[in-house]
Structure formats: structure tokens, C-alpha cells
């Protein structure tokens, strides 16, 4: 029975997540169009709402091309690593409190791993392999440049990401994500208690997801399409899916760590039953993620792309010292107050 509940939960979460990711693509296209004073895709279905389905069908129908010079095995493996890493991170994010359904007490989190944050950091660093292998195995110049850039960028920003989370762990005394969310009940969100950590983590997650202003691995004007220049058809589709899943997961992670997760302030004063409180909390979590994704997209059209040396300077000379300073300040505040 427990196994069945787990499987149902997993299928539901995965379905909702992939559906959301497909519509994040549409949201990005429509929002970009609005910012650039265009219309954007609006023909397939009402206001373009069926566009993601049309895109998937188109990608499935496309021919898959592997260059003769490429390393066939690694070329096939790379998109699988990317999408696997992007999706598996979502397994430990708590998306709601407990809920009672048909007499079962269900926890709204797939796996409550006791090393939560370490698991996330381990997986995000594995994500580099997908990009690096895809660039190297294509045996083409643009992908190679993209993969060198992506690995240097991701290892530079992973440090500040790890160090900025340490402030939260010092306050929570646990690596479990649901403990971290419980700590943020009411208005005690970590964004208020850890403003410096929040900013460094936000910038680092932009760099880790390769979003503008940090999208040098696939800088279109210089590198054609960066690391996935030699990909087509469904394998390109998997990279595309992985990129947007990464953005979605990063938003979920920022929400969980800094914006209170599924906590909705003042929900207990509305006089709802426990069941409806849980529903409101899940909905609140979802709204926070969508706002965060919209923030990612708006930033894309606000800040121009960094030059490479600026990117490395920011990572090594500003983010890392600030993140370490944050640990120092947090420690002093906890000890002295």
C-alpha cells in the first residue's frame, strides 16, 4: 500500500512538473514577446495554450542526426544525464504539509532524505557532466567552446551556492528540507533573516541554470547554439526540457530555502479545515514558484550577457568572499544574541 501511494505520488508530481515545464516554455515566449512589444505564439489553441503540445509533436517527428565524427555513445548519453539530474532533484522538495485523503495520512513530499541539501548540491554538480559530455562528444568547435565555458562557470558558482546555504543550516541545525520549511512558519522567511545569503544564492542559481545574464555556454551570437549545436530531434528536446526543468527546480529550491516553501502566512486565521489548509499551502507554493520563474524570465530581458572575464571575476572575487562573510555574520549573530 505504501509502495502504491509512493508510486501514485511520484507519477502525479512528475506529470504536474513536466506539464508545468512545458507551460513555462510558453510563458517565457509570451512574456518575452510582451517585453519586446511583439505578440508571440497565439495561434495554436486559445491564446497559444496548445503550443507546447505542438512543439513536442514537432520535436518527436524530427530526424535525429549524429555527426559521423561524434562519439556516438557519449552523444546519446549526455541529454539523458541532463534530464535525469534536472528531474531527480525534485524528488526531495516538500510541496506541502501532510494531507488526509481517503483515510490515509499522506506526506506531500516524495522522499524526506536526511541529507537533503547535500543531495541537491551533489545532483546539481552532476549536471555539469551532461553539458560537458555533450560538447566534447560532438567533436565540433562551437559545442567544445560551450562545454569549456559551462564547466568553468558551473564550478565557479557552485562554491558560492554551497557556502550561502550554510547560513540557513546554522540557523536550522538540520539538512532536511522539511525542517527548513517548518522553521519559516508565519513571516519568519529566510529571505528576511538571511538577505545576503539570499542574494548570493539567487545569483549562483542563475549561473547554475545557465540563464541570462550567465548563459555563456549557449551564447547565441557567438556560439551558434553552444553545447547543443549538434543535437536535433528528441535529444535536442531533452536538452530543452532539462534547461527549463532546471529553471523550475531552481525556483522551487529558492522558494523552499528562502521564501517559506509551502508556508502561507495567516492561513490558520482563515478558519479553514485541515484539508483545505493543506490545499491552500500547496497552491501557495505553486504561486511562489510561478512568480520566481517569471522573475527569471524578466531578468533575461533586463540585464545583458556578461563578458567571460567579468563572469569569472564576479564568481571568484565577489560572490565567494561575500558568501563566506555571510557565514561569519550569521555565526556571530546566533552566538551573541
Amino acid at each position: 500500500m505504501e509502495l502504491l501511494i509512493t508510486v501514485i505520488k511520484i507519477v502525479a508530481v512528475m506529470g504536474v512538473m513536466l506539464g508545468c515545464v512545458a507551460y513555462v516554455v510558453l510563458l517565457e515566449r509570451r512574456l518575452s514577446a510582451a517585453i519586446q512589444n511583439r505578440i508571440g505564439p497565439n495561434r495554436v489553441g486559445w491564446q497559444g495554450l496548445l503550443q507546447p503540445i505542438a512543439d513536442v509533436v514537432k520535436l518527436i517527428m524530427k530526424e535525429d542526426i549524429v555527426p559521423t565524427k561524434a562519439n556516438r555513445f557519449l552523444h546519446d548519453l549526455a541529454p539523458l544525464i541532463s534530464i535525469g539530474v534536472a528531474m531527480t532533484t525534485f524528488a526531495i522538495i516538500p510541496f506541502g504539509n501532510r494531507i488526509s485523503l481517503f483515510g490515509y495520512d499522506i506526506k506531500l513530499q516524495i522522499a524526506d532524505v536526511n541529507i537533503g541539501i547535500l543531495y541537491i548540491l551533489a545532483l546539481t554538480s552532476l549536471g555539469v557532466y551532461g553539458l560537458t559530455l555533450s560538447g566534447w562528444s560532438s567533436n565540433s568547435k562551437y559545442p567544445l567552446l560551450g562545454c569549456i565555458r559551462s564547466s568553468a562557470q558551473m564550478i565557479s558558482y557552485e562554491l558560492s551556492m554551497g557556502v550561502s546555504i550554510i547560513g540557513i543550516i546554522m540557523m536550522t541545525e538540520s539538512l532536511k528540507l522539511d525542517k527548513i520549511v517548518e522553521m519559516q512558519a508565519g513571516w519568519h522567511w529566510n529571505i528576511i533573516l538571511q538577505p545576503i545569503g539570499f542574494i548570493t544564492f539567487l545569483v549562483a542559481s542563475f549561473a547554475e541554470t545557465n540563464r541570462l545574464p550567465f548563459d555563456l555556454p549557449e551564447a547565441e551570437p557567438e556560439l551558434v547554439a553552444g553545447f547543443h549545436t549538434e543535437y536535433s530531434g528528441m535529444k535536442f528536446g531533452l536538452f530543452y526540457l532539462a534547461e527549463y526543468s532546471n529553471m523550475f527546480v531552481a525556483s522551487a529550491l529558492i522558494t523552499t530555502l528562502y521564501l517559506g516553501g509551502w508556508q502561507v502566512p495567516f492561513v490558520h486565521s482563515l478558519g479553514l479545515s485541515d484539508f483545505w489548509i493543506s490545499i491552500v499551502q500547496v497552491f501557495g507554493f505553486f504561486v511562489k514558484i510561478v512568480l520566481m520563474v517569471a522573475f527569471f524570465i524578466i531578468i533575461r530581458w533586463t540585464i545583458p550577457r556578461f563578458r567571460y572575464d567579468q563572469l569569472m571575476n564576479l564568481g571568484w572575487k565577489f560572490m565567494l568572499p561575500i558568501a563566506i562573510l555571510n557565514v561569519l555574520i550569521t555565526g556571530l549573530v546566533i552566538l551573541l544574541i
Binding site: 511520484i10 534530464i83 531527480t88 531533452l238
Partner: peptide
Amino acid sequence: EFGRIFIFLLIGVVFVAGGLAVA
């Protein structure tokens, strides 16, 4: 808990492999 993650991974593999096979 890691068993659950393993099931998650398996279902993910089935989904991705399904997509690639259909394509």
C-alpha cells in the same frame, strides 16, 4: 527514503526512454 528516490528515477527513465522510443 532513498528507495523512493530510486523509484522516482526508474519512472523517470521509463518516461524518457518511452519518449525516445516513440521518436
